[in-house]
Design a protein around this nucleic acid. Structure first.
Lengths: 126, 126
DNA sequence: CGGTATCCTGAACGATACTG
DNA sequence: CAGTATCGTTCAGGATACCG
């Protein structure tokens, strides 16, 4: 679980470390842009500009920031072709593709409960 | 899919509406606090204060805000007992519990790829 | 083309105080 | 106890400009 912090007895040292790392990764990944980027990449290899076109509404800055973060966490692989002008390609790693399934489950969930959500909103707003 | 916007021919009107709603819901839910709250609630019914204790590090304000949002989207049910002092209970709805599975998949994913991630980070940071 | 750096604005957030 | 409101700060994030 991510929510609960274990108490720090020496024996738990590894567990707490794992736990806090899990929490850290969770905070990294559980954000709109990161998940949209992962979804957009899919099985393809995309260049920076192409990727930006795929992720509706993302800014240059947010894209670079999130790509660095995803690369750091080993979700995205970045390949630089030292040509002029430079050609940089992004693709999901195996764990990245794996996580992408989760994103899809979230999308499925949205569509599945579409009416429930619409109804709840109408009731709440009115 | 959530990333791509359909072009607005009249026939697609419902689809684009559904799509933009999906995107909206996605933006609502794909955030750290919302997911942590959903995870923390689990199968239980919790009161405001209890819930706050469960979600490590969340502020009073963030908790209320996110709870309102989750209620609005029909993920959380809020029950007020008109006593003094008031007793307000929160629980996941069926769609909410359903989405919670997704959160767990994300957690599982984290643990599964733990070493990969740690390695990637070391390589990236050094 | 892709990336970094700088600046600037508005939103997110925390702290605090007040109400039923 | 739970919730709203207000204020002040911090920080995310957009715009712009410049480098490889």
């Amino acid at each position: 679980m991510v929510t609960k912090q274990l108490k720090g007895t020496p024996e738990d040292a590894d567990l707490t470390r794992a736990d806090s790392l899990a929490r850290e990764i969770f905070s990294d990944i559980a954000n709109k842009w990161a998940l949209l980027i992962i979804d957009a990449l899919g099985e393809r290899t995309l260049r920076f500009t192409g990727l930006r076109a795929e992720v509706e509404g993302i800014s240059h800055k947010m894209l670079t920031q999130n790509l660095r973060m995803l690369e750091r966490n080993g979700l995205v692989e970045r390949t630089v072709h030292p040509t002029v002008p430079p050609r940089v390609e992004y693709a999901l790693t195996e764990p990245g593709r794996d996580l992408r399934k989760t994103v899809h489950w979230m999308c499925d969930w949205t569509h599945q409960h579409f009416h429930h959500i619409e109804g709840a909103r109408r009731r709440f707003d009115g």
